[in-house]
Amino acid sequence: MIAVELRKLVLRPRIWVNILLLCGLPLIVGIFLKTADFAPPPGQGGAFLSAVRGNGLLFPAAALALVLPVFLPLSVAVVAGDSIAGESVGGTLRYLLIRPVGRTRLLFAKIIALVAFVLLAIACVVVSSLVVGVILFGTGTSAAGGAAAGAATSLSGVSLTQGQLAARLLYSIGYIVVAMIGFGAIGLFLSTLTSSSLGAALGALSILITSAVLQTLDAATGVRPYLPTNYWLSWIDFFRDPIFWDSIDKGLLLQAGYVVVFFGAAWANLATKDITS
């Protein structure tokens, strides 16, 4: 069933359009950066953007910082929201269940497909932005400087070797994947509630927006550590030297909580639901 879900994922034109759009944003930003002859001042604009002009190898990190707040969650919400609701509205859900595919098994396969999508999307963004970065800005004359990584690394001025940079980029990707799966879990749960993919995706997005709004609201300080988006940007701490683990750990723990709660809720709902579509 997992293999079938993965095949369905890659056979969908929609998925590739989605990924193409994700890769498009960093490309556009890169071109603007290149054509403008001044760098954004450190601390302004997206993370890493000011450092990118010096070293194209940092561009994947900058690209991730660009797509993470809105674009990537948008894609994840669309795919997660479609996973059960899309089958339901198309009528294929009933044929899968009478094939028979166990409901738990189906949900598990959908989760794996969602994770695969997140990995695929991020891999495409990283690879495409690496290519774009190197072509537009070169690899820099010396190894990338930690200090060059904009305001995010103002704590440390130690420079990183290319190997270190690659390792930290991989850590970051891992962290972002976890964050997206935590968010995807919410979308998947909503997807089992409704038979409208759009409704589920919009529901997940409204949770994202609510969370982002509360994050900036001082009166909501009490709930801040539990907001799904709260630690999303903590992967930037991987680019400090030494790595600042505190909020990364908290972020991973929080996302694990979201994964357990919402996948659990999705399972509980789907396993007991009357399929009338």
């Binding site: 056979l11 198309g90 009528g91 294929t92 009933r94 044929y95 009478i98 094939r99």
Partner: peptide, 18 residues
């Protein structure tokens, strides 16, 4: 039981892009 049963419930359904 279900692998030995063929069924069509409320109209056919298929993935339209395949």
């Amino acid at each position: 039981v279900l692998p030995r049963i063929g069924a069509m419930v409320e109209g056919p359904a298929a993935y339209p892009h395949l």
